[in-house]
Design a protein around this nucleic acid. Sequence first.
DNA 1: ATATCGATTATCT
DNA 2: GATAATCGATATG
Length: 204
Amino acid sequence: MNVPLPRSFYEPTARLVAPRLLGHFLLRNTTQGSGGGAIVETEAYLADDPASHGYAGQTERNRSMYGPPGRAYVYFIYGNHYCLNVSCEREGKAGCVLFRALEPLLGLEEMSHARGMVVQAPRDLPKLASGPGRLAQAVAITRASDNGRDLTSPRSGLWIGTDDFRAKGIVLTLRIGITKAADQPLRYILQGNNFISGRKNVSV
DNA sequence: ATATCGATTATCT
DNA sequence: GATAATCGATATG
């Protein structure tokens, strides 16, 4: 958990990186506090993918998707939420993995504070970081502060640490909330994990 | 238990 | 001007 995943980890296509990220740790360290947990749900957005923000070519918004692998791509959606991705593939190619859910394991106090909620019982824990908007809020992600951040360096305060939380298998399902290329199974979840977003997790 | 709906704004057409 | 990789609240069985 204290060893970051190297940049080379993010060089393959998002289709390969997304399942491989499961079981590793997303970690946040700031002067305000720390937080994080095991990555239990991801989605791949590919270079040639109608559902991807990079599909129509590079713009100001999606610039960090096209940058070097291992960097954060943060976007703002529905006028309310930030979502965190990590860019994959070589510089110049779009492709990224969306972090959709964490099993909260570190800094529960800080994360509940960031979410504006109080965790009293274990059954409240899934509300902390299940879903991309919740996850981003739990670790205090904003586009202004985190877009383009290097996720391969602990010094950046937002990074991904090697771990083997992957007790069981990986399940492949359809992606959530998209309208284009909605039939593509590119969502990956840790089998049997209780911190997955959504209800229907139909295996494909 | 599942279904529907409103919020709220950056981005692109 | 329409839309969106979402969430939380409210309504209904």
